[in-house]
Design a protein around this nucleic acid. Sequence first.
DNA 1: TTGTAAGCGTTATCAG
DNA 2: CTGATAACGCTTACAA
Lengths: 331, 331
Amino acid sequence: MSSIRDVARLAGVSVATVSRALSMPEKVSSDSLAKVHTAIAQVGYKPNMLARNFRSARSYAVVVLVPDIANPFYSLFIRALEDRAQQKGYAVLLGDTRGTTEREIEYIRRVETRLADGIIQLRPSSEKSQNNIPSDIPCVNACGCEYTTGPAIRIDNRSAAKTMVDYLISLGHRRIGVISGLKDNPHTVDRLEGYKDAIRGAGIEFDRDLIAEGDFTMWSGLNAAFQFCNMKNRPTAIFSMNDEMAIGAMQTLKAQGIRIPEDMSVTGFDDIAYAKYCDPSLTTISQPAEEMGKMAMDMLLRIIEGEPLSQTECILPTEFIIRKSTAPVKA
Amino acid sequence: MSSIRDVARLAGVSVATVSRALSMPEKVSSDSLAKVHTAIAQVGYKPNMLARNFRSARSYAVVVLVPDIANPFYSLFIRALEDRAQQKGYAVLLGDTRGTTEREIEYIRRVETRLADGIIQLRPSSEKSQNNIPSDIPCVNACGCEYTTGPAIRIDNRSAAKTMVDYLISLGHRRIGVISGLKDNPHTVDRLEGYKDAIRGAGIEFDRDLIAEGDFTMWSGLNAAFQFCNMKNRPTAIFSMNDEMAIGAMQTLKAQGIRIPEDMSVTGFDDIAYAKYCDPSLTTISQPAEEMGKMAMDMLLRIIEGEPLSQTECILPTEFIIRKSTAPVKA
DNA sequence: TTGTAAGCGTTATCAG
DNA sequence: CTGATAACGCTTACAA
């Protein structure tokens, strides 16, 4: 309600002095400073950031584009992103796209109209799956893939997947089913390459029938698993491209009387919180979501503030976590 | 980059006309309208919303204060809130407080400094657990309790809890353990009252030893369950105040060789996605998070826009969901 | 060190 | 229906 003018009047100084007292107190005499502060307290002055932002042509806000905030894997990211943004004085505008391009575009428009200074993209993108974001707006992909263009923080999905499948192979598995994400999802592509790398390395022939397509939801994992249950020569292990599908798959297997890991090993990817608590606990790949979120936000803020980028792509290490859902193949 | 002046110049009209063409096209001649639109297209004009908001003294943004965004129960809420806000042209500023008052205050400051127009509070609050929010700022509690003051959307925690415990009693259980949230959490208080209502109704005496305190995390549920395992006269059923703790508890029980539900029934609260997929699937109470989020946002926007509120508190019905984690007590 | 005043992009008022 | 112009609250040259 009260503006800088009220404070100035009451303090008996000019508005410029009040402004300076707030943003560069060292350039103001301690006498004025004191008067200003008491005046501020008296009128209960709160600076109008809307005016300040307008003046500085900056919103100090960042859009976080996320396919689905209810996905636990993304929640972890967002928490890290928000934390970092808050530390640096930026706000996070939540942009849940629900996978639609339409909503994505609405949010992009927000930065074009100055309501946000940049974008953190959580949807993996590659040339094929365009990201609709004009190249002149600051953007960092916090969840990139091998073919992601532009600034990105990512893990090496391909080699992480290979590590996992190598492990299954080392346990004696030769028929290893895959529950993938949607075919054209960049994560799916990268991780499938890793799977192929591994089986190729072990001299195992690629069998298209061993690939069941899901969409990264538990429900799809549950369904995909049926495909394997009904096979005459069914796999002895399943490499699921995320934890949620693995958990869904385990439900199906258990319901069909298939014991995990005795009859079939199951692995996940991401290491969401439940992975540790499901039954049996899930062997999986842990992504450093905390670190990735922090780095992505830092990178974006550098771009926004025009600081030079030491590197435009950053690949972080994953952690391979062995729990109880995997075991050597039955003799 | 280009402002309304550039458009005006190119279109050969005044800035006022351009402004009107955009916000009230019916008051502008179709001739001018056409000229303005071609000019806009030519210079690629995007209105500066920062200026617009400043002018209208509104940010068209709303802070959503959430204790922890990685908590799946809150994610559902947030998704609904964001959806509704977006529909109405408002942005959602994510305010993950991580349970600290300090951060909560930083976010409240954002609305005091005009960066947001109001607050959706997801932390349950009552007189005891104050909510630090000055009464003059628009705020709706989307996750209220029996004693929440001010506008709120909530469920009847007490009677939902009673329903659940009544059900356990109907299965023959008499010793029913409770895994509660933190003692002073308003949800804990309400749900504990419901528990007491139920056992009182069945003539069962309240036994303080049957209450294990958790903090709504899986980990705390896991620990709390040990308390029951080690009892000489252990409960035959556990009423957990949320799903996550119930899932944690089930891990412990299974690890101790206690079968669920044959040896012990376990129930949850919230019906998070994972409740359906854990093993055994969890009997729980479903909150209409989607609906609650929508209503809360609508209510807040009404307050912000100065429209009258038909009701200041709204209690939505819950759904009682029976799955596989509960069974009649053993003979 | 301080004050004056211009200006950020938009909308609203008021004449024409 | 249109145009000139004054705000909105703040920052920042520039001058004193």
